[in-house]
Design a protein around this nucleic acid. Structure first.
Lengths: 171, 171
DNA sequence: CATTATTTTCAATAAATTTTGAAACTTTAG
DNA sequence: CTAAAGTTTCAAAATTTATTGAAAATAATG
């Protein structure tokens, strides 16, 4: 094994960032490997191959393949082909606002809209006991709140960065 | 085992809600048992004991104890004492806005602020290569974005419901 | 078409997380 | 103080989730 001499300070910063991004992902329900691959792609100045990801993050080909695919499903990573190269290259969208918008879009679709559907559905129960009243009242408040959040996110998803910045001014 | 005849429609709705809340929790990094206990407390018209939670959700005493404690750490569940009763009773805050505010407060403290600290820290690396420039640029954008989100959440946490509703009007 | 490079799949394995349950501990009542 | 009731702890077990690696599938090359 040959170690090329590289900028240690940078290598440490990079590793720290990848680590931290993985941990953040975990606490928001995103698998660590997926978040780490995303981190690596975010800071790569060039598109990189599965082999490079495997090497850099020390993970298996299967794991890289699965998680890169998941990132593509989220719409935040793309496959690229390089002329004269057979391998697939991957890049992450570097625009943080676009990233946030895309993540909002997906979480809305995958998590917020389904829970609103359940909340609407369970509302249909009838009865006037304390238990049932409390149930209807709480689930209704949750539904109304979720709907508001859903609407804000919808706006955000459809907006440009400027809209958000203006919103921030109004605070 | 004796089954008391209860409103089946309600029992199903309740179970569906608890299930869905648990699943939602999971996809946002909150353990399922914790989210389910929270769901049960949310819809309980009266404070309930650990035994009642165990019975209703079919989980062990240890599990209930651990997760109720975690919910108290999040500041969204409280212990109550009933006159003439030795057991602890638990209640969840029923105000959905207050709940959202409290969750925002905690996630800010536990996840957003730490990642901002890491992003600021890794920025300190120096060098002018493409690699390092890209690294600095991306981590800086992430830091600025996170700081903006942190500020919005801070406002939200300190605000009353009315502030948010007014904000929604402006959309 | 045969060969080789590359990607994908998926059963087996490993790792991480959650859950249990019984013992230790604490609190209250008598 | 003692006994009973209730709560907490935590090592072990169970479960869930993530990861590996090798075989199968696919795509490109000559």
């Amino acid at each position: 094994m040959i170690y090329v001499c590289r900028d240690m300070q940078y290598e440490e910063a990079k590793s720290k960032f990848i680590q931290a991004w993985g941990t953040l992902g975990s606490s928001w329900g995103i698998n660590k490997a997926m978040a780490q691959i995303h981190a690596l792609l975010l800071i790569s100045s060039e598109p990189i191959t599965a082999d490079e990801i495997m090497e850099e993050l020390q993970m298996s080909r299967g794991n890289v393949n699965m998680n890169v695919r998941a990132l593509m499903d989220w719409g935040i990573v793309q496959k690229q082909n390089k002329a004269g190269e057979r391998k697939d290259f991957f890049i992450a969208d570097k625009d943080v606002w676009e990233l946030a918008r895309q993540v909002s879009r997906e979480r809305r679709r995958r998590e917020i809209e389904p829970i609103i559907r359940v909340l609407s559905d369970v509302q249909k129960v009838d009865g006037k006991s304390d238990e049932i009243s409390e149930f209807k009242s709480v689930t209704n408040e949750l539904k109304e709140f979720s709907t508001k959040i859903d609407n804000v996110l919808e706006k955000f998803v459809k907006s440009d960065q400027n809209w958000f910045l203006k919103l921030l001014m109004n605070l």
